[in-house]
């Protein structure tokens, strides 16, 4: 059962994509691999204009960084708009209450070991 997670403020994510690249280098992923992916929402006649970072099943919350003490997950640290926070899910739920238009991620990490269509991974 997951006890830690990520809180993400959708209102102020600027879609800079720093999280995608920081994650890739932290984990040594291939360029086609993503531990987090930002999805663009331009919908409803342009009224809805959001970038939504969604971690993938490769996200392990940077356990090697956080285990060492005070290092934040790579995406949280490098996020240019500083819209992500790492912590206990119980605490992060409170962040959601304080700050609407935000989401919570509870991870279930899985090794990158099965790639039925690896060549089309990108």
């Amino acid at each position: 059962m997951a006890s830690n997670g990520l809180w993400i403020d959708i209102e102020f994510c600027t879609g800079c994509l720093a999280c995608e690249v920081a994650c890739r280098y932290e984990h040594g992923f291939a360029i086609e691999e993503f531990g987090i992916k930002v999805v663009e929402q331009v919908l409803n006649g342009g009224q809805t204009f959001n970038f939504v970072p969604i971690p993938t099943d490769l996200c392990d919350l940077c356990v090697s960084r956080t285990a060492k003490g005070n290092l934040k997950p790579a995406c949280v640290q490098h996020c240019l708009a500083q819209v992500m926070e790492y912590g206990k899910l119980t605490d992060l739920v409170k962040r959601m209450e304080e700050k609407p238009r935000s989401t919570l991620w509870s991870p279930k990490p899985r090794k990158a070991d099965r790639k039925p269509f690896a060549s089309a991974a990108a």
Partner: peptide, 24 residues
């Protein structure tokens, strides 16, 4: 092999853009 932002630096306070992160 990797580039990280310096958290103590007043300019970027630990953050970095994808172009700097992709420097390797």
């Amino acid at each position: 092999v990797k580039v990280e932002g310096q958290e103590s630096h007043p300019y970027n306070q630990g953050t970095l853009c994808p172009r700097a992160l992709a420097l390797p």
